[in-house]
């Protein structure tokens, strides 16, 4: 089993999420942030990393989750409001 695959996948997903975020594709960004965190969490829980590496990954997860929550709130509000740009 290649231990680096999941970590690399997580990094790729997070990178894509940031791209979509920047491009204002918030639904896609939200989805990708969630997936990235899932992979990061898997790495932390099931794949051997040093303590510092783990904590660094956890901190990243916290940031992505925070951002994802904000996107989710924004999308919820957008859903409720009529789709008319101001």
């Amino acid at each position: 089993a290649n231990n680096n695959n999941n970590l690399q996948k997580a990094i790729d997903l997070a990178s894509k999420a940031a791209q979509e975020d920047k491009a204002e594709n918030y639904e896609e960004a939200l989805r990708l942030y969630q997936h990235a965190v899932q992979y990061f969490l898997h790495v932390v829980k099931y794949e051997a990393q040093g303590d510092k590496a783990k904590q660094s990954i956890r901190a990243k997860c916290a940031e992505y989750l925070d951002r994802a929550e904000k996107l989710k709130e924004y999308l919820k509000k957008k859903e409720k409001a009529p789709a008319k740009p101001v």
């Binding site: 939200l30 969630q34 965190v37 899932q38 969490l41 932390v44 829980k45 904590q55 956890r58 901190a59 997860c61 916290a62 940031e63 989750l65 925070d66 994802a68 929550e69 989710k72």
Partner: peptide, 24 residues
């Protein structure tokens, strides 16, 4: 503040927030 929370977050807390995100 948010930064120190991020620095010390636990696996369980990450999981909790991830689940919360997944729920509509």
């Amino acid at each position: 503040p948010a930064k120190s929370k991020a620095a010390t977050i636990s696996d369980a807390e990450i999981e909790r927030q991830l689940k919360a995100l997944g729920m509509d």
